[in-house]
Amino acid sequence: MKIWKSIRENYQNELILFGIFVGLFIVMGIISPDKFLSAGNLQTMCYQMPEFGLMALAMMAAVLTGGMNLSICTGATVASIVAGCFMATTFANENPAIGVFVGIIITVAVAAVTGLLNGVLIAYVGVTAMLVTLGTKLLFEGLGLVVTKGGSLAGFPPLFLKVGSGALLGIPYTILIYIVAIVITYFLFERSVWGTQVYMVGCNETATRFSGIATRRTVLLVYIYSGIMYGLSGVLISSRYCSAKTDYGSSYLMQAVTAVVLGGTSISGGSGTVAGTVIAVAIIQVVSNGLNLVGVNRYMINMITGIILIAVLIVRYVSGALSDKKKIRERAARARA
């Protein structure tokens, strides 16, 4: 009971989100019970959600420090293109196990390097994150174009496709990777010293620096971490589509921002939870998949996502204002007493 109370106090926002998620899930289930609730569809969602969810985690890491990462999608594609160049070689195809393993390592490593570039410019040069990542977004996209000349790279070892389409006991690998990433992110951000520093930087960088924390290093690591997350997403994307191309996943950018904000992360940094982002991703997934099943025009789906975003924020504000008022009243009553 006590645990429940503390959860309710500390995770009020997440509970509301979860309520919305359950509500939407039920609504979709009522609209098309045979399709939406079918095992096949639930599995399809498990295949679809991770690549977007990892993008959202990558975005969230940057937003927690008060920054923004507009280069997540092009960073992921450039990484998978570099890895794709390796995996399309005859060596990789002849030694699929090594080829795939090295390919995945290359993707994540290149993504980490792109994150490093962002991080250095943001933390050490001191340019605003939004602007740096706007520049690197163009840069990565351009590099991908230079390598591929606009086409797509294909011819990867068939084993690689298993990553994105295989399943362990009916549970897709993709969702397993996603869950591991969520758990690691949770412990890193909400349970580690570094995580606490990240939140502090997001709240007030100057104060954090003067309390003896190497803020620059903290921020640099955040962007590298962000890079690793979108690198993993890049692995899943290129594996699911068994190819690599510059514009894969370009629609995830603004959706990731939406998910992060919907999840309750403050856009100015310093507050937000992994759970919130994960639930928000699930909400967007359910809306998109559910409405798609009943054949709603894609633009209507975008619109509904936008309405949900604005509505949640209005609700959040109104309920916050109400609870403030209540607190004031209680305090006034106590003072009178």
Binding site: G23, V27, L291, V294, V296, I301, I308, A311
Partner: peptide, 17 residues
């Protein structure tokens, strides 16, 4: 409020079709 929100979404989707 969260129920209301779910209803909003529903209404939006109904309006959509």
């Amino acid at each position: 409020l969260s129920t209301a929100l779910a209803c909003t979404a529903l209404a939006g989707c109904g309006g959509g079709s």
